[in-house]
Amino acid sequence: MKNNKYIVLLVFSFCVAYVQAQSGWTREAKGFYVQATASYFSSNDYYTTEGRLADQGSTFNSGGLLIYGEYGISDRFTAILDVPLVRLNSFSTTETVAGVGNIQLAIKYRLLKSFPLSLQVGLDIPSNDGENFARSNTADDFGQFNEINLPLSDGEFNVRTTLAASHGFANGKTYASTFTSINFRTESFSNQLQVGAEVGHLFFDKLYLIGKLKIQERLSSENNVQSGSFLYGEGTTFTNFGLTSMYKLTSHLNLVANYSDYSGFLVERKNIYDGGTFSLGLSLEY
């Protein structure tokens, strides 16, 4: 029983956005988990919709504060709330725009009692119409200050469906999970497929380390990619890898740190800025 508690705690501690963990476990009835995370990203390496590395001449910066929570409705049903409470976007040549990102509400259901296999259905709710214009820091040759759209939300509703399976090893300190997710998008955007896996281990009864790998592909029968900001995610494909650590400060409070990055190892990078994301946060579980 104690071994199972280690594995369940390990998995639920890392269901955060951007490199979101997915597992076959659900929370115990009336149990909850809350995490607040601050993140930062900066890069001038932009890959076009054709997968070509372009010279942009300016650096894109993004950051924010994420609030994530889970509540066990029953032993087999878990409610999930994912809120990018503050998002900050800018280029090195523009002012910074700030606001709330897409809000996700989801329900996860454990399909089998004897094996950790779950189905999660989530609704992404847009926080605005997808338009947040940032003004340039300097005027152009005609004395005009130009504006560029740096959306904090893609302005459309998504339905994400995820099937995940997990396995806890006999030592009670190691687990592995894998998942497949389809993001059904509206407003003429292409649907997206994500497939991922992660492995985690508990060291010294205090420190959790988790390695993650995820790919994203575009699901569409059309050859064209909708025009617009790369922040809409249209035509965006990538391989994402990351490392998450959690240190137990107390029996309920944890310090969480994460690093993730992109590569073209399995899936080519398209319509994306390539660089590392750093995040740091605190989590509370009962």
Score class of each variant (00 low, 15 high):
Thr48Leu: 06
Thr48Glu: 12
Thr48Asp: 15
Glu50Gly: 05
Gly51Met: 14
Gly51Ala: 14
Gly51Gln: 14
Leu53Phe: 05
Ala54Asp: 15
Ala54Leu: 13
Ala54His: 13
Asp55Pro: 13
Asp55Gly: 15
Gln56Arg: 10
Ser58Trp: 01
Thr59Glu: 13
Thr59Pro: 06
Phe60Glu: 09
Asn61Gly: 00
Asn61Trp: 00
Asn61Lys: 02
Ser62Ile: 00
Ser62Tyr: 01
Leu65Gln: 08
Leu65Arg: 10
Leu66Arg: 05
Ile67Leu: 14
Glu70Ile: 01
Tyr71Pro: 09
Tyr71Ser: 10
Tyr71Cys: 09
Gly72Asp: 14
Gly72Ile: 14
Ile73Thr: 13
Ile73Val: 15
Ile73Met: 14
Ser74Gly: 05
Arg76Asn: 13
Arg76Thr: 12
Arg76Trp: 09
Phe77Cys: 00
Thr78Phe: 04
Thr78Val: 05
Ala79Gln: 03
Ala79Met: 06
Ile80Phe: 12
Leu81Cys: 00
Val83Asp: 04
Val83Arg: 05
Pro84Leu: 04
Pro84Arg: 08
Leu85Tyr: 07
Leu85Val: 11
Leu85Asn: 02
Val86Trp: 09
Arg87Asp: 03
Arg87His: 02
Leu88Glu: 00
Leu88Met: 04
Leu88Asn: 01
Leu88His: 00
Ser90Arg: 09
Phe91Tyr: 15
Phe91Ala: 08
Phe91Cys: 08
Phe91Arg: 11
Phe91Gln: 11
Ser92Ile: 04
Ser92Leu: 04
Thr94Lys: 08
Glu95Met: 09
Glu95Tyr: 10
Thr96Gly: 00
Val97Phe: 00
Val97Gly: 00
Ala98Trp: 07
Gly101Trp: 01
Gly101Pro: 03
Gly101Leu: 02
Ile103Glu: 12
Gln104Phe: 11
Ile107Trp: 08
Lys108Trp: 04
Lys108Gln: 15
Lys108Leu: 03
Arg110Trp: 03
Arg110Phe: 03
Lys113His: 15
Phe115Gly: 13
Phe115Trp: 15
Phe115Arg: 15
Pro116Arg: 01
Val121Gln: 10
Gly122Tyr: 03
Gly122Pro: 08
Leu123Lys: 14
Asp124Cys: 01
Ile125Val: 12
Ile125His: 04
Pro126Ile: 05
Ser127Gln: 03
Ser127Leu: 02
Asn128Glu: 06
Asp129Val: 06
Asp129Cys: 07
Gly130Asn: 09
Gly130Leu: 07
Glu131Ala: 09
Asn132Thr: 12
Phe133Thr: 10
Ala134Met: 01
Arg135Asn: 06
Ser136Asn: 12
Thr138Ala: 11
Thr138Pro: 02
Ala139Arg: 13
Ala139Gln: 12
Gly143Val: 07
Gln144Asp: 05
Gln144Lys: 04
Asn146Gly: 10
Glu147Ile: 00
Glu147Trp: 01
